[in-house]
Amino acid sequence: MLTLRKAQDRGRAQFGWLDSRHTFSFGHYYDPEQMGFSALRVINDDVVAGGAGFDTHSHQNMEIISYVLEGVMEHKDSEGNRQSLPAGEFQLMSAGRGISHSEYNVSQSDKLRFLQIWIEPDVYGTQPGYQQKNFGSHSGLTTVISPSGEQGSLTIRQDASLHQLILEPGQNHHLAITDQRRVYLHQVRGEVQADDALIQSGDGARVEQESTLLITNTSDKKTLTLIFDLP
C-alpha cells in the first residue's frame, strides 16, 4: 500500500528569515495524522535568508540529518565541530545524551536551502557524534546512511537506512522491500512514477506491506528521490 502526501498539504512556518515546509508535525504545526512514520519523525524543507540561521539550541537522543540542496551551511556544536556544508553534502549529528549547535547561511545575499531530518534512535544517553560526507550525483541507488556504515555510508543509531536514488530520463529502479519493512519516499527534484502513483517535487509517500516497488523517471530531466528504509 502506498499513501501519497502532496507537497502543498505540508505545514508551513514563515518567520521572515525562515520559510519552512513540514512533512510531519513540528513546532506550531500540529496534525495528529502526521506525527511521523516508524522511526522517521521530521522532514523539514528549510529556506534560510542570507546571513540568517538557527541560533545555538540543544537536542537529546535524536539522530539529526541535514542535506544541503542550495547554498552553504555553517555548523558549530558543543563537541567542538565547526564545519561548512556546501550543496550536496549530508551531515549526521547524533545528539546522544545532549548536544548544542547552531546552523547559519554563510552567504549574506544568497538563500540556503536544506532538508532537516530527524530519526529516533534505538539507544539512548550515548556519546554525541558528528559525521559528514558528499555521496556524489551518480545515477542509481546510493546508500547514504545505514546502521553498520556499509559501503562508506554514515552510521546511524537505529535500524534504519537512507538511500539516494538518482534516475536519468526513462530510467527505472526496482526497489526490493524485505521482512515487512516500511519505506518512506521524499521527492527532492523532478517527478517519478512509483508503481501507479505520480510523486512530484516535495511530495512524500508511505509504503507499507509491499515486497517490491518500481520507481520510474517518466520525465525528460534527472530526478532525485530520498528513500528511507525503516523498521
Rank of each mutant, 00 (worst) to 15 (best):
L4M: 13
A7N: 15
R10M: 09
G11T: 13
A13S: 15
L18Y: 07
S20N: 08
Y29H: 10
D31K: 11
I43D: 01
I43M: 07
N44P: 10
V47Y: 08
G51Q: 08
G51T: 09
D55L: 08
D55S: 15
S58P: 12
Q60M: 13
N61P: 06
M62R: 09
E63L: 00
E63Y: 00
Y67D: 08
Y67I: 11
V68I: 15
E70G: 02
G80V: 03
G80E: 05
P86C: 03
S94Y: 00
A95I: 01
K111M: 11
K111S: 14
L112M: 09
F114M: 10
I117F: 06
G125I: 03
T126D: 04
G129N: 10
N134L: 02
F135Q: 03
F135E: 03
G140L: 08
S146H: 01
S146E: 07
G149F: 10
G149L: 12
T155Q: 15
D159R: 11
E168Q: 15
V183G: 05
Y184K: 02
Q187W: 02
R189H: 13
G190S: 06
A197D: 13
G202Y: 05
D203Q: 12
R206A: 08
V207I: 15
E210G: 04
I215E: 07
D220Y: 05
D220A: 14
K222A: 09
L224W: 13
L226P: 01
L230K: 02
